[in-house]
Design a protein around this nucleic acid. Structure first.
Length: 423
RNA sequence: GGAGAGGUGACCGAGAGGCCGAUGGUGCUCGCCUGCUAAGCGAGUGUAGUGUAACGCUACCGAGGGUUCGAAUCCCUCCCUCUCCGCCA
């Protein structure tokens, strides 16, 4: 959520900046609603002040028959107050609905552009493997090795579900452990294992609700949602809290499955592991002081890159343009891994700063040493990494002519010393 | 699922229609004291909205309604936590 005061005082500038996201972001109702709200508020407050004063007087009067006139006039005033409060509630609801639907203001350094074609490659790492045979796509590799079973996945659950077997299942588990160990032991993140179902307040805090309810799986008998990313439970850990400055930055890592309806991507990435309704991810989340957030985003990105470097997977980093940045984010770097089977780069991590956007929605603040007023923290998060996509990248990059897949060096201890996956 | 208890400020914990934005304690900040540390003494210390030159005013005691001139306090609904019993990973 944007700062209502900032919006009021910089309306034109905000409108202009939001326009760089493309699409239509309608702020036209704001000024009127904001004025109505303040008028109703001050009218009501004058009456409340009077009511409070007279009621106190009545309270001090022993003989109530002397104040019958005041009592009955206050009855009238109370009715007026109730009426104003009702009007106010309605205006505030509209205003809130409008505000909750407004995306974050893009970072001043984000490249301006309308679509992913305008994203800017900022770096790349590694050598694309030089294969002397036609590379297979991971779904063929996985099925041929008997470690991925898409048919049974759809039998059990439907399209976009997959079953892992044997060394495939173990590889997924190995990757989760490898990533968690790296981030906790080398990068100083605190491991957390949060709930996979969360309530509306949590989904609203990070910005999935109210706008993107259609993308979420929802439970029928109780009002809970399956998390689409660990960002939601982990960021909401500190919802409605005031943190100590000396505890910042707070850095968490979490493994969770992620559940996404993928509404609106029918027909896209229908084969393979790229786009599943359920996938595993190791997430990185930070709570930082505002002045540190840019540097912390760089550090977060480096931590995610490290995973790919250790796994020996070639990748590039892309600075998302204003038109491609998600609703809550101010700036996002995507890491894209090279997939020989498809001869293209595909997103494997997304590292973002939300500045105070989520912190305002979720009321996550901190108090500076000796300061009186709490301030909003900045929140950041990034995938470190999407596990399913990492697994498929390994299958495609480490595939051999004979159909086997070599295990990357750093994963061997996690695979019980296994050198390669073969039939 | 059955029975009971309870949700109050950063934390603990009083308050049971007006004197309560809320005693007290812990923590924190500032000052004093003290070779150092610990202890001690004194003062201060909630959040938000709104208007202003200063300062007010308003709201907030889990959430939402209701009763009343007046609600942390009474009534209703919901949510959450804890204890015991039952059931079950």
């Amino acid at each position: 959520m944007l700062d209502i005061k900032y919006l009021r005082e910089n309306f034109a500038a905000v409108e202009k900046s939001l326009a760089t996201r493309g699409g239509t972001i309608d702020l036209s109702g704001f000024t009127t609603l904001d004025q109505q709200r303040r008028e109703l508020l001050s009218k009501g407050e004058v009456l409340k002040a009077e009511k409070n004063k007279v009621s106190a007087m009545i309270g001090q009067t022993k003989n109530k028959s002397l104040v019958q006139a005041e009592i009955s006039s206050m009855k009238e005033v109370s009715a007026q107050i109730k009426d104003l409060d009702d009007q106010l509630r309605e205006v505030e609801e509209q205003l809130n609905q409008l505000l909750m639907g407004v995306p974050n203001i893009p970072h001043e350094k984000s490249p301006i552009g309308l679509s992913e074609d305008d994203n800017v490659e900022v770096s790349s790492w590694g050598e694309k493997p030089n294969l002397d045979f036609p590379p297979k796509a991971h779904w063929d590799i996985g099925e041929d090795l008997g470690i991925l079973d898409f048919e049974r996945g759809s039998k059990l659950s439907g399209a976009r579900f997959c079953v892992y077997f044997g060394a495939g299942a173990r590889l997924e588990r190995a990757l989760i452990n490898f990533m968690l160990d790296l981030h906790t032991q080398e990068h100083n993140y605190k491991e957390t294992l949060p709930p996979f179902l969360v309530n509306r307040a949590s989904m609203t805090g990070t910005g999935q609700l109210p706008k993107f309810e259609n993308d979420l799986f929802h439970t029928e008998d109780v009002d809970l949602f399956l998390i689409p990313t660990a960002e939601v439970p982990v960021t909401n850990l500190h919802r409605d809290e005031i943190l100590n400055e000396k505890d910042l930055p707070l850095c968490y890592t979490a493994y969770t499955p992620c559940f996404r309806k993928e509404a609106g991507s029918h027909g896209k990435d229908t084969r393979g592991l790229i786009r599943q309704h359920q996938f595993n991810k190791v997430e990185l989340v930070k709570f930082v002081r505002p002045e540190d957030s840019d540097a912390e985003l760089d550090a977060l990105l480096k931590n995610a890159e490290k995973v790919l470097q250790l796994l020996g997977l070639p990748y590039r980093v892309v600075d998302l343009c204003t038109g491609d940045i998600g609703f809550s984010a101010a700036r996002t770097f995507d890491i894209e891994v090279w997939l020989p089977g498809q001869q293209c780069y595909r997103e494997i991590s997304s590292c973002s700063t939300f500045r105070d956007f989520q912190a305002r929605r979720a009321s996550i603040r901190f108090r500076r040493e000796g300061a009186k007023k709490p301030e909003l923290v900045h929140t950041l998060n990034g995938s470190g990494l999407a596990v399913g996509r990492t697994l498929l990248a390994i299958l495609e990059n480490y595939q051999q002519k004979d159909g086997s897949v070599v295990i990357p060096e750093v994963l061997k201890p996690y695979m019980g010393g296994l050198e390669k996956i073969e039939k």
